[in-house]
Design a protein around this nucleic acid. Structure first.
Lengths: 200, 200, 200, 200
DNA sequence: TATGAATGAGATTTCATTCAT
DNA sequence: AATGAATGAAATCTCATTCAT
C-alpha cells in the first residue's frame, strides 16, 4: 500500500473510532461533526471526503462492528471446538456474542435495536467470515453437516436472533429482570425448544 | 369541565396528535417544534405551556399509545373470553396487540424502540387497565387463577415480550423472513415451549 | 399600525437599505448575510424571517429601486410640465432618470443590466405611479393625448428603453465614448428618429 | 507542435469548453472549480496550471467567444459581398452576429452582460480579424472607403452596438416584445436613422 | 507536468427558547 | 392563556487553494 493509501486508511479509521467513542459517550444526536473532526485531529472538510454525513458514518460503523462480532465468534468456535454439533455450535456463538457485548456495554448500547434480523442478515450477507465465506454459507454448512434436519431453518434462526438480541440487551444493560448469567440457562432452554419445534 | 378547561384539553390533544403524525412521518429528529405548532394551528409559545420540550411530548405519547394497546387487548379479552386458561389468555393478548400493530404500522414504527421489557413494565405499572387495576395485577390474577404453576413468571413474561416485540416488528414492517400470518404459528409454538419450560 | 407592525417595517427597511449599501460597495457575491445582519444590527435568524435568501432580497431591491426611478420622474413631470407633448414628456422622463442615475452611480451599478425591457415592464406593470395608475396606463394616456399617432408603440418604447439604458450606463459609468452631457444630444436625436420612423 | 505542447493545448481547450458548458448551464456563481475539473477529466491541481482562477478562465472565454463572432461575420462579408457600401456592410455584420446568437442562445446568455461597448471595444482592439488587422482598422477602412462622411463615427458605432446588443438580447431570449425576425426591420430603420443623423 | 488528499475559513441555515404584547 | 417576532448559538456543508508525491 502506498504511503498515500495507508494515510487515507488511517484517517478513515481515526474518524470511525473517534465517532464510535463519541456516539457511545454522548449519543448520535448530541455528537456533532465538529466534535468528531476535532477529536480525530483532522480538518472539517476531510470528514466529507470519507462520509456523506453523520448517518453514513453511523451505518458504516454498525456494519463494521456487528460483522466483527460474528467473525470473532466464528473464529473462536473454529479454534476451540470445530467439530461440535449444530446445537452446540449455535449456543457457542450466541454465548460468545453475549459475553462480548457484556464486556463492552458501549458497543451494545450503540448497536441496540440493530441487533436484529434485518441488520443481522445484511451483516452476514456482506461480510466474508473467512476469505470466500460468510455467515450465511457457514450456517448452511452447519445445517448440512447436522444429523438432525430442520424445517424452515431461516425462520428458526430469525426467532433465535430476535429473542437473544432483545432479551440480551435488557439483561446486560439493566439486569432487568435478571442479569446475563441468570438469563443464560433460560435462553439455552428456549433455544433448545425452538430447535425441537423445528426438527423434522 | 369548563369551557376554558375543554379548550386546553383540545389544544393538548391537537398537539399530541399532530406530533404523532409528524414523528411517524418524518421521525423525531427531523420534526421540529415549528412543524408541530404550525400543523396544529397554535402559536409557538403555546407549545411550552403544555410540554417542556419535544422529548417530554414524545414520552407522553409513548405512555398513551402503549397503554392503550394493552387496555384494548384486555377489554377485548374480557368481552369475548373472560374465563379462558392462562395460556389462551396470554396468546389472545399477544395476537390482539400484533393485529393492532399490523393495521397501524405508523404506530409500530413509532413504538419500535420501546417495544421491549423496560417500556412494557413502565406501561403496565403506570396505567390502570381498569379503574384501580393495571397489567401487573392482571397478570398476577391470571397466574393465581391458573391451574398450572410457573417458576420465574416474570422472566417467562420477559422472554415472551422480547420475542414477540422483536420478531413481530420485523415480520410486520418488512415481511422478513415471513409475514405476520406466517409467523403466528411459530410464535404460538415458541410461547408454548417457553411456558412448558417454566412449568413447575 | 401597531407597534409590532411598525417594528417589522423598520427591520425590513433596515435590512433592505443595509444590503443595498453593501451590494453597491462590495458586490453581491462578496456580500454575505452575516455582513448584512451585522451592519443592520439584527440577529442572523431575523434575516430569514424577511427574505428567503440573498437573491430574494436582491430581487426585492431591484423592484423597489427601479420603480422609484419612474415614480420620481413621473412626479417631476406632473409638477413642472403636465401638459407637454408626447415627445417632450418622453424626453423629460428619459433625462430625469439619466440625471438621477448620474448622481447616484451606486444605484446605476446595482441596476446595471436590469435597466432593460424585461425589468422595465415588470416594474411599470406592478407599481402604481399614482394610486390607481402605473406607467403602462400613463404611457397609453400620453399616446392617446398625442396628436401624432404611432404604429407599434410598444416596440418603439422597447427600442428607446434598451438604447437609453444601455448607452446611458456606459456613458455615466465610464464616460466612454463620451460623458452623459455629450451623449444627451445624440440620444435625443436618435429617439426623435425612432419616433419619426414609427409615426403613421 | 510537440506532443507535450499539443497535450497542453488539449487540456486547456477541454477546460475552456467544459467551463463554458457549465457556466451556461448553471451560471458562473454555481459552477465550482471541482465541477469543471471533474467534467473535464483532469485533476484539481491541473486547473491552476492553466488559469489563475474561475474569473481568469471566464475572461479568456469572453475574449475567445466574442472575437470569434466578429471574425465569422467579417469572413462571411469578405466572401459574399466584399465591395458593398458602408451601410450595407454594417447591416450585414449586425445581422450575421444576431443570427449566430439566435442559433446559439447559450452563447448569448453567457455573453449577455458583455454585449456592450466596453467589451466590444476590447474585443476588437485585441483581436486581429485577419492576420495583422482588427475590427478597429477594419471599421476605419470601411469609413475611409465610404463616399459618405460621418461626424463622431465612434459615438455612432457606440449607439448602434448598445442598441443592437441590448434589444437583440431581449428579442432572442424572450421574444419580448417581438421575435428577432420581427425586430430586424426596426433595427435596420433605426440604424439607418442613426447613420443619417451622423452624416456630415 | 500532473495529481488529488487535505485543509479550514467561512458561508448558509436551523431551531429551541424567550418575552413583550 | 395565547401569541409570534426576535434571538443567536451552533450545526451543516462548501470550495478555492495548497503541496507532497
Amino acid at each position: 500500500m502506498s504511503k498515500v493509501q495507508s494515510n487515507k486508511q488511517k484517517k478513515n479509521d481515526s474518524l470511525l473510532n473517534t465517532a464510535f467513542d463519541l456516539f457511545t459517550e454522548k449519543g448520535l444526536n448530541k455528537t456533532t461533526i465538529s466534535d468528531i473532526v476535532e477529536k480525530a485531529g483532522v480538518a472539517k472538510g476531510t470528514f466529507y471526503l470519507y462520509f456523506k454525513d453523520k448517518y453514513d458514518l453511523r451505518n458504516k460503523l454498525i456494519s463494521n462492528k456487528s460483522s466483527q462480532l460474528f467473525i470473532d465468534a466464528y473464529n473462536a468456535l473454529s479454534l476451540t471446538n470445530p467439530d461440535c454439533s449444530f446445537e452446540e455450535g449455535l449456543l457457542f456463538i450466541v454465548e460468545h456474542i453475549l459475553n462480548a457485548l457484556n464486556s463492552n456495554k458501549a458497543l451494545l448500547a450503540f448497536l441496540h435495536k440493530d441487533l436484529s434480523w434485518g441488520v443481522f442478515k445484511r451483516a452476514f450477507e456482506d461480510t466474508p467470515v473467512v476469505d470466500e465465506d460468510n455467515f450465511a454459507t457457514f450456517y448452511k454448512k452447519m445445517l448440512d453437516k447436522s444429523e438432525i434436519k430442520f424445517k424452515d431453518p431461516e425462520i428458526m434462526l430469525f426467532l433465535i436472533v430476535e429473542l437473544v438480541g432483545s432479551a440480551g440487551y435488557s439483561s446486560i444493560m439493566f439486569s432487568d429482570p435478571c442479569n446475563l448469567e441468570e438469563l443464560k440457562p433460560y435462553l439455552r432452554d428456549t433455544i433448545h425448544s425452538i430447535l425441537i419445534a423445528h426438527t423434522v
